[in-house]
Design a protein around this nucleic acid. Structure first.
Lengths: 136, 136
DNA sequence: TACTAAAACAGTAATTATTACTGATTAAAA
DNA sequence: TTTTAATCAGTAATAATTACTGTTTTAGTA
């Protein structure tokens, strides 16, 4: 895997782990996933690299309604379903950036992208008949 | 102002402050605003009431790409401009919820709302010719 | 390949944001 | 009123993240 930035074993491992994952992991989840195979790995290294990798646009840091930051290895602009019951984050592959941008008419600001979280009750939580009267 | 929930002087003050504000303040900003006129007010009280008020849908907690949680006294569904340079949050009064919902075709999830942050360079930062090559 | 400088590392300390706890006060209900 | 429940201020604790330090690794160069 090309880094296009200074190389380190840890950086490569972390990037690979995020790219592989489909569940938008937190820093701590990435650390826990890699630690068994890399006992010397430190949590600070994970945080430092996540910050560097997202500054370099190799990964995306996601804003979610609650909980710690999450990271996404898919840097194509795309959006997310966020379950307000279990906090699970899923890709919204059915919406395109062009769908979003066409609803705008020349704002004064210079737009660089969109972050869209579609708040939902996921299929699983819906099956379990979660009471969400206090959420919405 | 009607609370529709247990009353306390502090709760009323905090709700009023958020409703009045247009800049989506953080807990600490609200605390600093109210403290001079209410020297006994405690930061924990601000946090506790913000949580209660948003659970009761009297205010909205905003997910922003970085920094502490922000709060919005406008509970009508609406969206936000987020300046990636100065982190300022502004209302996007030019987009309606119906504009967003019409781009979907029957997802499996039960949708309860949308959170849209329009990442931008705000007018002011744009004037100042901020270098954003590292953001996007 | 060896030498040097810069970058990154692990481990730990510090900081920031938020929540929980405790005994005193205030609001609501009987 | 009296009693009960909720809220408060103040403080302690926790969670998430960043900064610091001395050591190791990487990158550039001779």
């Amino acid at each position: 895997m090309q880094l296009d930035m200074n190389y380190s074993k840890q950086r490569e491992l972390i990037l690979y782990e995020i790219k592989k994952s489909k569940c938008h992991p937190t820093a701590f989840e990435i650390y826990n996933e890699l630690k068994p195979g890399n006992p010397a790995l430190s949590l600070g290294t994970v945080y430092r690299n996540l910050k560097l990798l997202s500054t370099e646009n190799k990964i995306i840091k996601l804003a979610t309604p609650s909980g710690p930051d999450r990271f996404d290895g898919n840097t194509d602009e795309h959006y997310h379903y966020y379950c307000i019951s279990c906090s699970k984050v899923c890709d919204a592959d059915d919406i395109k950036a062009s769908d979003i941008s066409k609803i705008f008419n020349n704002p004064k600001q210079k737009i660089v992208g969109y972050e869209l979280n579609i708040l939902c009750i996921c299929e699983e939580c819906n099956k379990n008949n979660i009471d969400v009267s206090n959420y919405k």
